[in-house]
Amino acid sequence: MNADTFDFLLNGEYWTWSNYDSFPHRILEHLHYSALALVIAFVIAFPIGLLIGHTDRGSFFAINVGNAGRALPTLGVLMLVLVLVGTGLMPVVVALVILAIPPILTTTYAGIRSVSDVTVDAARGVGMREWQIITGVELPTALPIIFGGVRNAVLQVISTATIAAYVGLGGLGRYLFDGLALTDYPRVVAGSVLVAALAVIIDLLLGLVQRLVVSPGVDGRASKGRRGRRDASAAATAVRTVEEVSPATS
């Protein structure tokens, strides 16, 4: 990173609300596209992953969707949808959703499958109904793996959401494409730095959420001796709070 890039990043003009091309605006746009795509992808992939994992039927489907999804070039999908439905937010969101589904679907499926058969047998044997087994035992036990997939999807979507600028929308990709067009390389580098920083910050936040939501009994914290145990009781309180507000687990 050279001095020009710093100058660009520290330019006060780019930190005001009045300037439509400022960093706060672009970051919000970027988060908007990313969040929209991630929520849609999650709503599609997560329930399917749960169902396939719980029943162990259709794992062939989950694996193939995972592989095919990874093989699709996002830019190609973007152009295809653009040709089919025209410009706007839709092509970008569709391309990002297709990018985000495979990691969420495959890790949800794999996470649920990783729960020991003995545990599931015990859950059924003590009288839990199937949905109680899924929400009360399989899901909480699979959470560390599922979080891995979701965080992976978030990273990929945030870094790929730059393509929105390629089809005339905003987001942090603006600096990249505008910079390339203007041969203003400090602008390109600054845009990349912002995308990377945003992705890392969101990932760290998700890491915190994960720590609060996942039981120490399943992510290795509980088995790490005394320090782990103290953490465990603190996090256990958090987990109980979450369990109590969620009617599904009671």
């Binding site: 020991s116 003995v118 545990t119 044997g125 003590v126 039981s215 009994g217 399943v218 987990v239």
Partner: peptide, 12 residues
């Protein structure tokens, strides 16, 4: 219901 390996719920 008691089974081999107990089958406790690891997250609880």
């Amino acid at each position: 219901y008691v089974i081999q390996h107990a089958g406790l719920f690891p997250h609880r």
